[in-house]
Nucleic acid binder design. Structure first.
Lengths: 407, 407
DNA sequence: CTAGGTTTGTTGCGTCGCCAAGCATACCCA
DNA sequence: TGGGTATGCTTGGCGACGCAACAAACCTAG
């Protein structure tokens, strides 16, 4: 965009033009907070009424928002028309995982329009992901209105994602290595595709639309069959790390003299907080949906002791991570979330005991709120980024065109 | 500034006016990169030549920069005048610590004009800090030209700093608690004072002017007599944590079954990487300046074994932190820096061995470059923030005025 | 030493985006 | 039904930037 050689300091305004900035403000606000009156947008932005008039008109022309007739709300003064994100704008999201491929269509403001998990009984291949995605789009094109337009594709992958070229660097549980999945999906759909780690997009979703709303510093830990992952929102934005490789919070150290971890190291958090150990004790695999029920109703000395151990290990991990980030809020998902509900007092007490001074004494622990909508909503964020950042230059593709191409 | 109720999304341009943004770009560029020609500024900013002409003129009127006559540099074309940050603009920095109080005057572009450590043989009190600062300013006023102007005071404190009210929440080694030091210094000098943790400002300095130049993701670990501290630059900016309390990297967990730490917890990094253990083995206190010499020249089985242990512990800590941040660069200072030079191969091998996949295999380890200039330069950044962010509204106070008031 | 090429400084003008002011409109309440 | 109030809408002005044209200062080549 700019011919700026070194991309360090905040760019001058010309590379990030004033108008786009302000249109972006309006779109973001509508996206995160839902329908707002023009008057609310005006006071939130600090801009002049007349300026907001022009901006909303421009966004209407772009078919990015719709303005409803003003409705009296009981207060004095002329009512202000309600501006809402255009309901026809959707993002396609794709999330391959060990259980299969989840595709979804997500609207602005975190609205999940459709969501479908296609189970796959083997390690899914990239080509199969493309086929499943195409079929999903085709079936959706029949159900949804012809006015539906897609902003792009957001792909969430369970593994290390290289954000420079939108490829999967390494996804051990899919047995993928250096897979240019975004490119494949782009060719199949004709839409721009962006990829990120599944947990990373999840934490973004939770911070925008879930329990993390209004919280600028939060830590997320997710327990899945494949281990413990996580992500961090610091000062309102996601920690990406050096190569956009993201974070691997499941592999922080708990014990240098501990057990061997699948990652080849020793004493990682995920070796001590592990759903497989629970399965071994129970003698059966328990899905995440049943887990709350099991933790609440089944009790054997062995299970109780193990959950106590896992709770202590989790607390130790949280306390250690709190030294590094000092979050206001720690969000727990997957089996770690279930563990929180089963052992909340123990975990809270232990985190408090192991806190470093004021850093983590006040930390709140919560389960994630979005549950199965978390990853689709987060992945959609990737696709919406263009529309939200440069509304005037967003290119939206009719769903029918995408379906036609995929067929 | 703005009447914006919720301070989330990026503000609209009016709250961050275009002109200030661009003037800020120029000032920041000159600050971090030193003198530049107007033509270089033009192409770096992407702005028009005529615009840059006007901006540099405005900054000259504000006496924030000076423009030297153009000098031919051997290339074709009309030579461009050299723009440099005004040498008369200085920041006053104050850094109380166990050894005493260090005051300094620092110019833009990381130039340390004067630096003085006043030793104090007891725990220094806030009032003493004020007195020492006043005396320093008075003596400087005699030495420096009358044209010298101060941008403000930057205070670096060894402990938890509450950035909301610029007070020291807790500084165990000074035995301070809830000390409004910035307010005290403001009253003594009449200058605006800002405070932050000493290690936090240090890592900012190192990332702007030291080994971290050009690196957006770096981790800093500093070993001092009082323990191990650290800071993180992620995506180019400092991780501040929930209440601006900063990070306590010395207290990440190495071993849940390890030794007790002074912080009341167990198995922290700083219990296993500790200069006091070296002193015990040597039978004497060794200052940081001598440490390199000692590590290079003294060798007993006991010392060698202990340094090996400390190297391994440090490597484990780095590998664990790398899972959380995936830094490109890890910078080591204080006794941890000396340890790096003494055991570089061992540490690098161990970090590599304990790396999680691609996350930390490529990580570089380096000693800090700025050494004793690190904290003053970083603290000055706090004072320069106003000048760099809103150049037109910066208020600079003649040094003589400050000295007069302090007297 | 001079002419042509190149890069940058400088000036004047046009455009874009915002704000302020004033009037119009639509609500509430008495 | 009229006053109070908040917002919509329109017009005019201003600040900041880009563009284009010309001037100035350097280099190189002959």
């Amino acid at each position: 965009m700019a011919d700026d050689a070194q991309g360090d300091e905040s760019r001058p305004a010309v590379a990030d033009p004033v108008r786009q900035r302000n249109l972006s403000f309006v779109m973001r606000r509508l996206h995160t907070q839902g329908p707002l009156t023009r008057s609310e947008l005006t006071s939130a932005s600090g801009l002049n009424r007349s300026t907001m008039l022009g901006m909303v008109a421009e966004l209407q022309d772009l078919e990015l928002v719709i303005e409803d007739a003003a409705v009296a709300d009981g207060t004095a003064g002329r009512p202000s028309p309600l501006v809402r994100p255009h309901p026809d704008i959707l993002a396609l999201t794709v999330n391959p995982d060990v259980a299969g491929v989840t595709c979804a269509l997500v609207g602005l403001n975190g609205r999940v329009v459709a969501r479908e998990l296609v189970p796959v009984d083997h390690k899914v291949t990239p080509d199969e992901v493309g086929t499943i995605t195409g079929a999903f789009v085709a079936s959706m094109a029949k159900e949804l209105p012809a006015s539906t337009r897609l902003a792009g594709v957001g792909i969430a992958a369970p593994g290390l994602v290289d954000e420079r070229d939108n490829s999967v660097a390494l996804a051990p549980y899919l047995e993928w290595e250096d897979v240019p999945l975004a490119e494949l999906i782009e060719q199949a759909t004709g839409l721009p595709a962006t990829m990120a780690n599944d947990t990373s997009v999840g934490v973004v979703a939770e911070s925008l639309f879930g329990i993390g709303v209004g919280c600028d510093n939060l830590l997320y830990l997710n327990g899945s069959t494949s281990g413990v992952g996580g992500g961090v929102i610091s000062d309102g934005s996601l920690i990406r790390g050096a190569h956009g490789l993201g974070t691997e919070l499941g592999h922080v150290l708990l014990n240098r003299n501990g057990k061997h971890c699948v990652c080849g190291r020793v004493g990682c958090l995920e070796t001590e907080v592990n759903i497989r150990r629970v399965w071994d004790i129970l003698g059966r695999r328990v899905g995440l949906n049943e887990l709350d029920h099991v933790y609440a109703n089944e009790s054997t000395p062995e299970l109780d002791a193990d959950l106590d151990d896992q709770a202590d290990a989790l607390a130790a991990g949280i306390a250690s991570l709190a030294c590094v980030f000092s979050p206001e809020l720690v969000v727990l998902g997957g089996h770690v979330g279930a563990l929180l509900d089963a052992r909340r007092e123990r975990i809270e007490a232990e985190v408090k005991r192991q806190s470093f001074g004021p850093l983590s004494t006040g930390v709140r622990l919560e389960r994630n709120h979005l549950r199965e909508r978390m990853v689709p909503i987060g992945a959609a964020e990737l696709a919406f980024a263009r529309v939200l950042q440069q509304p005037s230059f967003a290119t939206l593709t009719p769903l029918a065109d995408v379906a036609g191409r995929a067929a």
